[in-house]
Design a protein around this nucleic acid. Structure first.
Lengths: 237, 237
DNA sequence: GTCTCCGTGTGGTCAGACCACACAGAGATC
DNA sequence: GATCTCTGTGTGGTCTGACCACACGGAGAC
């Protein structure tokens, strides 16, 4: 009943407190592991367990050596953590692939609706589409740009939470997509279709026709996963 | 260029592989740390760093002692990991509270739309509402049930990914809500209003009036966070 | 047959040691 | 004086060994 927290939880809570208090902010360096351990009266291994968690969550970046770039630095890049979380949950069957796809559809529909309504800056997304026109791209490279394009839409909406979720959702089933890719009927035809659909989505957004953009996103994504033989059914909204 | 993975990454990848291969499944026990270390030719501390990550991500549960319940067991409970991730990202300003609220609104609107359309089982949600009618509840207890109610809606939609996200979003700003709670004008009046709004949302779902349910959710959430002085603006959709 | 106790295996933690690495400054070289 | 080289130093990364707390389960006492 005394509820003794484990040592590494103490470290985690201490860092969280410093973050909330503003003592620690993105760009700052954490104290060296040995010093952190001494300051909290825990072993260095406990500190390391806590730092490992923070690293996977995308909160810090560690680097060996000396100098200003060495050590643990607060970075707060959520997409990495979101990807790791979802990838493992899919692997452990905590998340069904069907739900991942449905959630992606849900989020992306909301994103394009917002973009069509608010008229945000789509320069980054447009640039990615141009890059995808290069005929020298391999299949994997093309799909990577494809993923970036969809994330860029979420970023353009200005909602970092949604952007991170989109990245995580995509990454979590990336291996499944790549696995299924060889089964696509014809890669040149598929990539051509994907490019066309991307441009039509952007066009609908620019014309501020939210319903049309949403409809096109819906078709785009369901077709995509259907060809990958990933259950396209049961999409919320 | 040799790209030597760190020892704990080796452990993580090994476990992920076993999960994907089906060698490891929810309910299974991981090998003891010492044995795992020997099998992968890494130190026990590296194994522990990997297990710590998996624990925070909600993939395993560890317990001391001996017997069938001791050790690390695969559980795959994503909400815990989602909560930790979002809580730290909010603390480190990777996520703006505004975006968290906007995302919650987005997801919940989609959830009630789905529920109103598909006619899912709402018994669990109804039961939580009844529990919230008890006059002996403290403020914190009431708010905990409140959070559970909203998560239960997401669960009723059958999408575990969305349910985990809802739980994570809510937990990540829970501390802010509790902080602001004392500033509410009148607790009895507030709780009464919340109860009323909850029931009206469920009613709209039962009547399969999706638009109405969405509208009521929107009002419910924006009012809620507005009273908590948490930026209610800029909600996608 | 029941109760008690202790062996055993598990995670949790700590301390110490060593390695690889990267920077910074001292010193050598031109 | 400017440049190059080298070594010291501080950092994370890892391993080993040791000890603790805990919970189960069977051996032994009653």
């Amino acid at each position: 009943m005394t509820d003794t927290p484990r040592a590494w939880e103490t470290v985690l809570r201490s860092i969280e407190t410093d973050l909330l208090a503003g003592t620690l902010a993105p760009g700052d360096r954490l104290p060296p592991e040995r010093q952190l351990a001494a300051g909290l009266s825990v072993g260095r291994s406990s500190v390391r367990e806590a730092l490992r968690v923070l690293e996977v969550l995308g909160l810090i970046r560690t680097q060996t050596g000396s100098g200003p770039q060495a050590g643990a630095i607060i970075v707060a890049t959520p997409s990495g953590g979101m990807s790791a979380l979802m990838r493992f949950q899919v692997a452990a069957r905590g998340f069904a692939v069907r739900d991942v796809v449905a959630t992606r559809l849900l989020l992306e529909a909301a994103v394009v609706t917002e973009l069509a309504t608010s008229g945000a800056d789509l320069a980054a997304s447009t640039q990615l589409l141009d890059a995808m026109d290069s005929p020298s791209l391999t299949e994997a490279e093309f799909l990577a740009l494809d993923a970036q394009f969809h994330v860029s839409l979420a970023e353009a909406s200005g909602n970092e939470v949604v952007a991170a979720m989109m990245a995580g959702l995509r990454n979590s089933i990336e291996s499944y997509v790549l696995e299924a890719a060889p089964e696509w009927h014809s890669w040149p035809a598929t990539s051509e279709r994907l490019r066309r659909e991307h441009r039509s989505i952007l066009e609908a957004i620019r014309n501020t026709t939210a319903d049309l953009a949403r409809e096109r996103v819906r078709n785009h994504i369901t077709t995509y996963y259907s060809e990958s033989r990933l259950t396209p059914d049961s999409a919320i909204t």
